[in-house]
Nucleic acid binder design. Structure first.
Lengths: 140, 140
DNA sequence: ACCTGGAGGTTGTCATGTCAACCTTGGCTT
DNA sequence: AAGCCAAGGTTGACATGACAACCTCCAGGT
């Protein structure tokens, strides 16, 4: 069961990622970042907020943002010497807009269309369930 | 929904991976390789077979095996100049044996115990479903 | 005012993954 | 027998992710 679970996950992610990349030149991670930025009104957000939304550590986010900055998808604006705001650029918005329908189609094709509504509901419920709990107990 | 789906999978994979790594020094990938090798009687298998089981490309597998070979978890035996067999070493078996209970416990803790039996069944069914189909049509 | 701690970010390094180019060799054609 | 080709693997370069060390600067106590 574990193997199957792992495989299907990687598979789906991979396919959707490829579709987006091929069609718009965005990687899956980039899409994730952009789409969360766009989700808040002004398209701007503290780095740390973003990090916790994506459950990434700050280092990973920092590297990722550096790359995205080079590609002009986002900008960084220093607020008070400590806090940094990430801002969606024009290009970022455009790319995202272009990617969204592709993404939606790909998800539908690779995931949703193969499942019953009931199965989808279950997955959503399960995802939320597992996502909520944050505390970790180690194996001990 | 997509974000939640993605998050939950990464999360679970991550946690299980960490548990194994911490307890036995094996990475998730290594565990995967070893466990599939062990699944067949003699603990030996053509590289390509292994690759397709894991849905990895040959390059990735090759690199991975090189690393595992260095750590003495597996050996490679050249059969006919082209074909290569991967063989579980003693150490590999031991590590795997040590890891299995940890793995099982971790999966239970991080996944199974938080779900109802019904949800688990659904996931299994879904995983098999998505895993089976191999052909890809691209976005076009 | 000082000084100290920890929050917020960045950077370097190493492990892992992807991609494309490249060997080798068994099997098929002719 | 000679050639060719595709299957099976390897390799090197580059992208991505994890981890730990480090820098900066606000906040709060004294």
């Amino acid at each position: 069961m574990w193997h199957a679970f792992r495989l299907m996950h990687e598979d789906v992610l991979d396919r959707v990622g490829r579709d987006i990349a091929q069609a718009t030149g965005l990687s899956g991670s980039e899409f994730g970042v952009l789409s969360r930025l766009a989700a808040v009104g002004k398209g701007e957000m503290r780095q740390q907020t973003l990090a916790s939304m994506m459950a990434w550590d700050k280092s990973r986010l920092s590297h990722q943002l550096t790359r995205m900055q080079e590609r002009a998808l986002i900008e960084r604006r220093r607020a008070d010497g400590k806090t940094v705001f990430v801002v969606l650029t024009k290009l970022g918005r455009e790319k995202l807009a272009a990617a969204r329908p592709i993404h939606a189609a790909s998800v539908r094709r690779n995931l949703l269309s193969r499942l019953t509504q009931e199965q989808i509901d279950t997955i959503v419920r399960v995802s939320n369930l597992l996502g909520e709990e944050d505390e970790r107990s180690s194996v001990s």
